[in-house]
Amino acid sequence: MSDPFKQLHTAMNQFAAERDWDQFHSPKNLAMALTVEAAELQECFQWLTEEQSRALDDEQLAAVRDEIADVQLYLIRLAGKVGVDIEQACRDKMQKNAAKYPADEVRGSSRKYTWYQK
């Protein structure tokens, strides 16, 4: 885990300990809370056109920024609870995705990977 993730993980542990919230932070509960925060992020874009979603005003961007932070903080907390190194997990997943979605076969397509598999 890189230093910024370690620092945030430590800060999240301290934050929860100071509030006696560790008792509520089971992996199940953290995963559920994460989906709520992801939905709040999605809500920031609800009813916007594609173009509007690419040109957020300052207020909209501030709301998106806060929700992205909430999602990331819950991910860090959950990863710590189950012993996952987020940085390594992302590297591993990118390798799997590269094998699953070969650039020369899927370039420019948004179709699910199963359409081109032999």
Score class of each variant (00 low, 15 high):
Ser2Phe: 08
Tyr113His: 15
Lys100Cys: 09
Glu51Ser: 09
Ala11Val: 09
Pro4Gly: 04
Ser2Tyr: 07
Lys100Arg: 14
Leu48Phe: 06
Glu87Gln: 14
Arg111Met: 12
Met94Cys: 14
Phe24Ile: 11
His9Pro: 05
Gln14Trp: 10
Phe15Gln: 12
Ala33His: 05
Lys112Ile: 09
Gln72Arg: 10
Gln7Ala: 12
Gly80Pro: 02
Leu75Pro: 07
Ala39Asn: 04
Ala63Phe: 12
Arg111Asn: 08
Gln14Glu: 14
His25Gly: 03
Ala55Asp: 04
Gly108His: 08
Ala16Thr: 13
Met32Leu: 15
Cys44Ile: 00
Gln88Gly: 04
Gly83His: 11
Val71Trp: 04
Cys90Asp: 07
Leu34Glu: 05
Gln95Cys: 02
Lys81Ser: 07
His25Val: 07
Lys112Asn: 14
Glu67Val: 08
Trp115Ile: 15
Asp57Ser: 12
Asn13Trp: 12
Asn29His: 09
Lys28Leu: 02
Ala31Thr: 03
Ala99Asp: 15
Thr10Gln: 11
Lys28Thr: 05
Ser26Lys: 05
Lys96Trp: 12
Ala62Pro: 00
Asp104Asn: 04
Asp92His: 06
Glu51Cys: 00
Asp57Arg: 09
Thr10Ala: 13
Asn29Lys: 06
Asp92Cys: 00
Gln60Ser: 13
Phe15Pro: 03
Thr35Ser: 05
Lys93Gly: 08
Asp70Lys: 09
Lys6Thr: 08
Val84Glu: 01
Ser110Thr: 11
Asp70Asn: 10
Ala89Trp: 10
Glu87Lys: 12
Lys112Arg: 11
Ala69Gln: 05
Arg65Asp: 13
Ile86Glu: 05
Glu37Ala: 15
Arg91Met: 14
Val64Gly: 01
Leu61Pro: 06
Arg111Ser: 04
Ala55Leu: 12
Phe24Thr: 12
Arg91Pro: 01
Gln46Trp: 10
Tyr113Pro: 11
Glu87Leu: 12
Thr114His: 11
Glu51Tyr: 02
Lys93Val: 02
Glu18Ala: 07
Asn29Glu: 07
Leu41His: 04
Lys28Arg: 02
Thr49Ile: 03
Gln46Met: 01
Asp92Trp: 06
Ala17His: 11
Gly83Glu: 06
Glu87Asn: 10
Val36Tyr: 03
Ala55Cys: 07
Ala38Glu: 01
Val71Ser: 02
Tyr116Lys: 15
Asp3Glu: 08
Asp58Cys: 03
Gln46Leu: 07
Arg77Val: 03
Lys6Ser: 11
Thr114Asp: 13
Thr35Glu: 06
Gln52Leu: 01
Glu59Ala: 14
Leu48Ala: 08
Trp21Asn: 11
Lys112Thr: 03
Cys90Arg: 10
Gly83Ser: 02
Met32Pro: 03
Arg107Tyr: 05
Leu48Gln: 04
Cys90Leu: 11
Trp115Thr: 10
Glu50Ile: 01
Ala39Phe: 00
Lys96Phe: 08
Ala39Asp: 00
Trp115Tyr: 14
Gln46Ile: 00
Lys81Phe: 01
Arg19Pro: 03
Ala69Phe: 08
Cys90Gln: 10
Lys100Ser: 12
Gly80Glu: 04
Gly83Lys: 10
Asp92Ala: 02
Ser26Ile: 02
Ala38Cys: 13
Gln23His: 12
Gln117His: 09
Asn29Gln: 04
Asp57Met: 08
Lys81Thr: 05
Met1Arg: 05
Ala79Val: 04
Ala38Met: 14
Arg19Met: 06
